[in-house]
């Protein structure tokens, strides 16, 4: 069984994988690469933070101590390159992590369509806690908002903003969600 396991991504997939591998292999060296500046929080839960259904501290599902107790090492950084030939992941700043087994649990990020005005102030995406904080700040003084996207995040985001009393328009390409 592989002894050096590197998991890139600290979402539910990466963390669940780390905990499951630990349960199966008590001696493996398990490293989770966390590219976020915060700890281990629920990204799908950000829409519920915006809706006021859950306070920010409750989004954090695991503490640093939880990870240490499970003997899962957390490395803050952003993976920029994989070198399969010599089994190494390279992080920004040239830190390298050797691995026997590599799991990429990167999730997804919002796509900014190439349309006029996409870079104007007030046009935002929701991928991180910092994004959610920015949206909350924008919503405080807003009277109208527009949410674009046909996925569950966009739908929940529209619900969340509307629940704050902001007149919200929801745009999607298809006729039905």
């Amino acid at each position: 069984m592989a002894d050096r396991i590197v998991i890139v991504g600290n979402g539910p997939a990466g963390l669940t994988a780390a905990e499951t591998i630990r349960a199966l292999n008590p001696t493996a060296d398990i490293v989770v690469v966390n590219g976020d500046t915060h700890g281990f929080y629920s990204k799908p839960g950000l829409a519920y933070l915006l809706a006021g259904l859950v306070p920010q501290p409750r989004l954090f599902s695991r503490s640093e101590k939880d990870m240490a107790d499970a003997q899962i090492r957390v490395v803050r950084g952003r993976a920029v390159r994989v070198s399969p030939a010599d089994h190494r992941v390279v992080l920004a700043g040239d830190t390298t992590l050797p691995y026997d087994c590599l799991l990429l649990a990167l999730g997804a990020t919002a796509v900014r369509p190439d349309i006029p005005g996409i870079s104007l102030p007030g046009v935002v995406t929701l991928d991180s806690l910092d994004d959610a904080r920015l949206i909350l700040k924008l919503a405080e003084g807003a009277t109208t908002a527009c949410v674009v996207g046909g996925g569950i995040t966009a739908l929940e985001l529209a619900e969340g903003i509307a629940s704050r009393g902001v007149e919200t328009h929801y745009l999607m390409r298809g006729e039905h969600y």
């Binding site: 539910p12 629920s42 799908p44 839960g45 259904l53 859950v54 409750r58 599902s61």
Partner: peptide, 10 residues
């Protein structure tokens, strides 16, 4: 199905 949002515990 769980996305670990914490609404249940809250």
């Amino acid at each position: 199905r769980c996305v670990e949002c914490g609404i249940c515990s809250f």
